[in-house]
């Protein structure tokens, strides 16, 4: 009942040509967090891990390695991710976007030396945004309840399924050796290092960091699903 009223309000505001931010601003706090006590526990654990281990490693990474090296590492993982982004765009029925993603992989893997240089971005082939959680959302799945995963951080019921699907389809998952673990760890550190600035910004601006992070995550994911829907409709 409440959900249908809320979607009616959102639809009405949307038809009036209003912005999404306006629709969100007028609806009640958009969170569904029945596991809040458990989530807060994992959030605190992640914060502690961040402070004692991950942030220092990320900071060392950022200071020790020159920018081209850091960018190279980010690009190699980004190139792998483009394969998954393209697959998800296909699943969402976004053929043209998928073409862009796969062209990026082709160009970056060859001209870009195994993905080290993102040549495609300079050729007007922009990196897309896509993951299996978004695909489920485009297909109509609601985010469900909010979840904080150990190490991985904010997620939702839907996005956790999406993440599991991503892990299951990653070849590294099936290579049980030091190399694959090393590669997964390396990607983890690289992503952390890339987000140090954002994490600092949340630190300075939030009163209740848990609630703030939860809200940022849910709003961001809703926007990603919305843009996926729009792209799928306009294909």
């Amino acid at each position: 009942m409440i959900r249908s009223v809320r979607s009616a309000v959102i639809a009405a505001v949307f038809f009036a040509g209003s912005s999404l931010s306006c629709a969100l601003a007028q609806s009640p706090a958009p969170h569904n967090d029945p596991l809040e006590p458990v989530n807060r526990g994992f959030f605190a654990l992640n914060e502690a891990l961040d402070t004692v281990a991950l942030k220092p490693i990320a900071t060392i990474w950022n200071t020790v390695l020159p920018k081209p090296v850091r960018m190279g590492v980010a690009n190699v993982f980004g190139n792998l991710d483009d394969v998954f982004i393209g697959a998800n765009h296909l699943l969402q029925g976004r053929g043209r976007d998928a073409m862009t993603d796969f062209s990026r992989v082709l160009i970056n893997s060859t001209v870009g030396i195994a993905g080290l240089i993102d040549v495609a971005s300079t050729q007007n082939l922009q990196k897309g945004e896509g993951d299996f959680g978004q695909t489920l959302g485009v297909w109509g799945a609601e985010p469900g309840f909010y979840l904080v995963l150990p190490l991985m951080g904010p997620s939702s019921a839907r996005d956790t399924i999406g993440r599991a699907a991503r892990v299951a389809s990653d070849p590294r998952t099936y290579m049980v050796d030091a190399w694959s673990y090393g590669l997964i760890g390396l990607e983890f550190v690289q992503i952390k290092a890339d987000n140090v600035d954002n994490a600092n910004l949340i630190d300075t601006s939030s009163l209740d960091k848990y609630a703030f992070t939860r809200n940022l995550y849910l709003q961001r994911r809703a926007a990603i699903v919305q843009s996926g829907r729009e792209a799928a409709g306009a294909r």
Binding site: S21, A25, I224, Q226
Partner: peptide, 21 residues
């Protein structure tokens, strides 16, 4: 009165926090 970064509205972000406090 509002700034929205990549679909994240500043006002909405603070509303959740303010409400809980």
């Amino acid at each position: 009165y509002d700034v929205t970064v990549e679909g994240v509205s500043l006002i909405t972000a603070y509303r959740d926090e303010f409400n809980s406090i």
